[in-house]
Design a protein around this nucleic acid. Structure first.
Lengths: 331, 331
DNA sequence: TTGTATGCGTTATCAT
DNA sequence: ATGATAACGCATACAA
């Protein structure tokens, strides 16, 4: 690999002059510039970004950590984030933890070692102190650590409210919500709070069933769904992320439960998994594009030392009405 | 950020002694080691990988370039590749081109600048010379440049043969194959060759319709499918990647075409998009895990200077039989 | 066992 | 307009 000094030698100048041509950082005589550009071409020279990064204390890379790259929500989000980063002149390093705490911790350690400039955390199973001890710009998704670290999150409370209304309209009495872990800092759990608040006030039963996102095994979801529906015939409403929601629809069909007549299903996320389904699924849609845009906006501001925006960034969800829920109670 | 010299100062030793403790590269007195480890802890020291990489001429990062991170096939593959890389001690940098040639070229340039050690090319729209001029280990997916650059590819010819058999069994007479571009170096086109060879020998019409992978817009696929089915009522067989295949199934249902009675559909890839469908879709399955394993095996061998394996790595596809095709011609 | 000197490739500062 | 020098943080060869 040709270095800047090889180019300098070939063009009969000092290395720093080559550097000046490279960066346009100072005026160089036209004739000298030509010689240097010629030499760069002949040597097929490309600057070493490692050395550059070392000098500038900046790698030009942002890491994103997710539970699974395959997961449709995270792959859609990562796709958008990469696009945003590209526009801002950064590269993305996408890593996945498989929801394994040790791997998350290990990656966080790697990220501190100057290989990346900042991190988007799409997974967060460590203790708050560990995020607070991270000494670089960090943006958390769906997880509030404290008042300092920026967080980008969908308005899950509204998501829960919208879903609750659908269940009420459908006259449902026994709801199961397939969801993530319950912890005060896990903001997506707000959807469950809202659901429960509204529905139990109307005497509707709501039960949470916790699963891990990274157990991203559709057949497993399908078995779970079948088991739940068979063991609990009184269940008449399901809220779940796109993938488990689809699993319930498939399970319902297999055991002969009619949707939406005897079972209402609301999917949560709105990835292409709902689009590709033959049914038109009622869905709470997270604004993936806006999440990506806001996350990178906040992170790049931090990276480039611009004034900080508010730490809490909440974005609107929307309801897409399909026919896996009933619009009105038949009277 | 504490540097190795800060640690050295605190522990009253020279920097190289700290380095020795870090790497276990030479014996250090037990008491000295303790002092150093203590100092590292107190300073919350983490080695600077940029500096390390600069010295070692190695970044510990492998790039993967794909047309779209969202695409279920590529996100599944990227997920596996990341796992394989992690096991081998490398990080992955995942980038997408949106099938834009300029972006692919730009990324290739970035990848040469010592920021990554090698590249997995999941997209390849440049001229062969550009890949040949790349001076680092490269593994191409589905694309043969020459006899030197390693390529990992599914046995698409067999894929085409398996599909052709299904169409023959179903008595289909007019097939449409939704596929990528036709070029000698694009190996996935072999499936089309095989399909045509076998079917036209039996007097079955086969027509190729080219689409771009990155136009990853399900509604667009759906419109296309509806248009094709309505304008060509004689069509009785479809082969397409998972996503467009599902679009055809949805379109068929919308315009009242019966599957598999009057329309057979074979999906190609076998991502979870077919799993999540309510129908049981006949599918040619690419061995994603094996592709990832072989790709990284070959690449890491190159990176670590081990003897090169054969350049051509072809992996077996399999048929998963569903009920979007007929098993026997009703006589 | 430990320390000194040097280089990896780049760029900023200061000098000419 | 151009060059010499030093520094970024680390790891090696060599010396002590």
């Amino acid at each position: 690999m040709a270095s800047i000094r090889d180019v300098a030698k070939k063009a009969n100048v000092a290395a720093c002059t080559v550097s000046r041509v490279l960066n346009g950082s100072a005026s160089v005589a036209e004739e000298t510039r030509q010689r240097i550009e010629q030499a760069m071409k002949e040597l097929n020279y490309i600057p070493n970004e490692l050395a550059r990064g070392m000098f500038k204390q900046r790698a030009g890379i942002v890491a994103m950590l997710v539970p699974s790259i395959r997961h449709p929500f995270f792959s859609s989000l990562a796709d958008q984030i990469e696009k945003e980063l590209y526009q801002q002149g950064y590269k993305m390093m996408l890593c996945s933890t498989g929801d394994d705490i040790a791997r998350e911790r290990e990656y966080m350690k790697t990220f501190r070692s100057n290989i990346v400039d900042g991190v988007i955390m799409g997974v967060s199973n460590l203790k708050d102190e560990e995020y607070e001890a991270f000494q670089k710009p960090l943006v958390m998704l769906d997880h509030k650590v404290n008042e300092e670290i920026p967080v980008v999150v969908s308005d899950h409370r509204t998501g829960g409210i919208l879903a609750a209304q659908k269940f009420l309209e459908g006259g449902c009495r026994n709801i199961i919500h397939i969801c993530g872990l319950d912890a005060p800092e896990v903001l997506s759990f707000q959807s469950h709070r809202a659901l429960e608040e509204i529905l139990s006030a109307r005497g509707v039963q709501v039960k949470a069933v916790e699963i891990k996102w990274s157990n991203f095994d559709f057949d497993g979801y399908l078995e779970l769904a079948k088991m739940i529906l068979e063991k609990n015939p009184e269940i008449d409403g399901i809220m779940a992320a796109d993938l488990p929601a689809v699993a319930f629809l498939k399970a319902a069909r297999q055991i002969g439960r009619k949707v939406p007549e005897t079972l209402c299903v609301v999917a949560y996320d709105g990835t292409y998994v709902v689009d590709t389904n033959l049914l038109d699924i009622t869905t709470i849609v997270q604004p993936v594009k806006e999440i990506a845009n806001r996350s990178i906006g906040v992170l790049v501001d931090l990276l480039e030392g611009r004034p900080a925006k508010p730490a809490m960034n909440m974005l609107e969800v929307s309801l897409r009405e399909g026919n896996t829920t009933k619009s009105r109670i038949p009277s």
